[in-house]
Write a protein that binds this DNA or RNA. Structure first.
Length: 511
RNA sequence: GCCGAUGUAGCUCAGGUGGUUAGAGCGAGGGAUUCAUAAACCCUAGGUCGGCGGUUCGACUCCGCCCAUCGGCACCA
């Protein structure tokens, strides 16, 4: 079955930071894992480029909105390369292919009666050009928080999406698909809010022009959120049935995973499914809303200026390497309901205890003994692997289930658990003592062959997390990476007599 | 303010339909050892299980109140 995974499209008004890097890395690990299995994977990311904020920023800089979007989109694309991320496409919402399809979808919603022209009335701040909700306006004593001038009662004509009419259908869908929104805490949040009842949502704006024109009424532009959500299917060409893009990519819909941050849950868990229902398109399989990184115990914010930004991240690459960064993101990140704290010391400890002491050290001691006792030649195992083939198979099963559930920690632990068991096995069987007893040579051969083979298999399972370092391990073990997972984790991949090199994958570093 | 969640060892978190000594990983201290990147291994850590009150023979686990933190409260990308 084709596997489709998406990140949100990133707002071009932002500079790339750890938040973007995190979401994209999570998707990248998953995409690599699925490709390793031999699945047909499509991994999408991109940029969201419309909206009043972009228009204003561009004006402030004295450039056109498109020029600003071009510059920042290019920066996001450059960053993806620096991070070694393997997205299959990069969609930009100002591309004609996207705009045309969004208009097609909106037109269909209009024709189906799911979008209608309505009137919005509310408290308007003329200086700020924004509306406040009734409660917020009351809090402000009906005065502008900026200018102090009284708010005015204003009305505006907008097109609305009949979200309210999907209440029942959404409730039924959530009931039938309890895993649709992950993690469970986020699902409960959505259900709670759903119980309060849905109101129709405006899908157009008239107070600025930097957006996709509303089909048939061009003084309206399509609200950025609606525009942005459609990226998930415009990239597959679903808005141009029969087109070239659709021919190649329509098979990827419905998406397996929309990975998002918790701040945009409502749009993805409720509005997006309702839009798809209105268009009679299939639902994505899962929405996974991760939480946020905080920095040294403090919430990251623009005003605090404490975002873990690109230069900071590149500092970690320089010191620890890209794979170490991926490992920290994937195993220590906020994939579940609570936030994770990014701390330099924690990063260092994770690097040392996981990567140096286990993932680096275990292959090192195994290849070192084989070099010392067998001149580097893979020994023959008269025990056919003993208990290890079954242990490896169990780890693969656990790993597969974890990947299916986007449980990156579980998958990483399944792989690393094998290495920890090999360490224990070496401790128990003491091959370094057997080496001194010629009468027990056969036993020694079996033990070290089993160790090497298990290390090889663990290395395969670690590839999505540590692609560069596991490539080094493959070279040391004289392996290639062509075959699908099932073949590569089969016992006996290293032929007896193969010349194995000593390897030291992760150097110990000072804090 | 309203709704929801969380609060357990230095850090990150498990756990228990109430019952003798509350667990893991990491960090820290000590030991033994060498195949290995002084790594793997063994031992140690005494934390009033957020606070107060209640129910009970007995609560960290049940109930109430309070405090703190986090999320949501719709036009915010």
């Amino acid at each position: 079955m084709p596997a489709y995974i998406t990140t949100p499209i990133y707002y071009v008004n932002d500079r790339p930071h750890i938040g973007h890097a995190y979401t994209t890395t999570v998707c990248d690990v998953w995409a690599r894992a699925m490709r390793l299995r031999g699945e047909d994977v499509f991994f999408l990311t991109g940029t969201d480029e419309h909206g009043v904020k972009v228009e204003k920023s561009a004006a402030a800089k004295g450039v056109s909105p498109q020029a600003l979007a071009d510059e920042n989109a290019a920066e996001f694309q450059r960053v993806l390369k620096v991070f070694g991320l393997t997205n299959d496409d990069f969609i930009r919402t100002t591309e004609p292919r996207h705009e045309k399809q969004v208009q097609y979808f909106v037109k269909r919603l209009l024709d189906a009666g799911s979008v209608y022209l309505g009137t919005f009335e509310g408290w308007y701040d003329e200086g700020q050009e924004e509306y406040y909700t009734e409660t917020r306006a009351k809090e402000l004593d009906y005065k502008s928080p900026i200018s102090g001038r009284p708010l005015t009662r204003a009305t505006e004509q907008n097109y609305y999406f009949k979200l309210s009419s999907f209440q029942k259908q959404l409730e039924d869908f959530f009931a039938a698909n309890p895993d649709f929104v992950q993690p469970a805490a986020r699902r409960n949040e959505v259900l709670g809010r759903l119980r309060d009842g849905l109101q129709d949502v405006p899908v157009t704006r008239t107070n600025f022009t930097w957006g996709i024109p509303f089909p048939g009424d061009e003084k309206h532009v399509i609200y950025v959120w609606i525009d942005a959500l459609f990226n998930y299917i415009t990239a597959l060409g679903l808005g141009e049935p029969g087109g070239t893009l659709a021919t190649q990519r329509a098979k990827y819909w419905p998406a397996a995973y929309h990975v998002i941050g918790k701040e945009i849950l409502w749009f993805h868990a409720v509005i997006w499914p309702a839009l798809l229902m209105a268009l009679e398109l299939p639902m994505p399989r899962r929405i996974h809303a991760h939480s946020f990184w905080i920095a040294d115990g403090q919430k990251m914010s623009k005003s605090m200026g404490n975002f873990v930004d690109l230069p900071t991240i590149e500092g970690y690459f320089a010191k620890y390497g890209l794979d170490a960064w991926r490992w920290y993101m994937a195993t220590q990140g906020p994939l579940q309901a609570s936030d994770s704290d990014f701390r330099a010391q924690h990063f260092h400890e994770t690097y040392t205890s996981d990567l140096v002491n286990v993932v680096g050290n275990c292959p090192s001691r195994v290849t070192a003994m084989i070099n010392k006792y067998f001149e580097g030649k893979m020994p023959a195992d008269s025990q056919s692997g003993g208990e290890w083939p079954a242990k490896c198979a169990a780890a693969v099963t656990t790993w597969n289930a974890a990947i299916d559930a986007l449980d990156l920690v579980g998958a990483a632990q399944a792989a690393m658990g094998l290495l920890r068991e090999i360490d224990a096995f070496i401790h128990r069987t003491e091959p370094f003592k057997l080496a001194k007893d010629p009468a027990r040579a056969d036993e020694l051969c079996s033990i070290l062959a089993q160790c090497a083979e298990t290390v090889r298999i663990a290395g395969v399972l670690l590839e999505p997390f540590l692609p560069a370092k596991m490539a080094e391990l493959r070279v040391a073990l004289k392996q290639d990476d062509g075959a699908p997972l099932s073949k590569r984790v089969a016992w006996g991949g290293i032929a007896p007599g193969t010349a194995l090199e000593k390897c030291a994958l992760f150097p110990r570093l000072e804090a």
